[in-house]
């Protein structure tokens, strides 16, 4: 997807949804997972991903675990309890948004 502006507002929700499914993930893994799921259509850049992760962490929605992996340290992120609750709200919000956009873009398909 060329126009990255379109997914920017949903980036936090995408990250949280992935973490809910996978348990815990590190930065590079998240970018690859998104690429894999969307068959290369959606490419989350490093410059957008890490600030988003750090903000979610500062807000207390994510927790961090650091582990030594292959001669280096790896920072894993996982949802906190607050994050899990927030994830439900944000997903509902995003679904609602998608539905609304669909109504606008393709009125015939909507109900």
């Amino acid at each position: 997807m060329k126009n990255s502006q379109l997914y920017k507002g949903s980036l936090n929700t995408i990250i949280m949804k992935l973490l809910e499914e996978q348990g815990r993930m590190y930065g590079y893994e998240i970018t690859q997972k998104v690429k894999e799921i969307t068959k290369g259509e959606l490419n989350i850049t490093e410059g957008a991903l890490y600030p988003a992760l750090h903000k979610l962490e500062a807000d207390g929605l994510l927790d961090v675990e650091v582990e030594k992996v292959d001669n280096r340290l790896r920072k894993y992120y996982k949802l906190t309890e607050k994050g899990t609750t927030e994830n439900v709200n944000r997903l509902a919000e995003l679904e609602e948004f998608i539905k609304n956009i669909q109504t606008i873009v393709n009125p015939k398909l909507s109900y």
């Binding site: 590190y26 930065g27 590079y28 992996v69 280096r72 340290l73 790896r74 920072k75």
Partner: peptide, 11 residues
């Protein structure tokens, strides 16, 4: 730096 390092190394 530690987080960037892991990202680059994995890639």
């Amino acid at each position: 730096r530690m987080e960037m390092l892991d990202h680059v190394a994995t890639a």
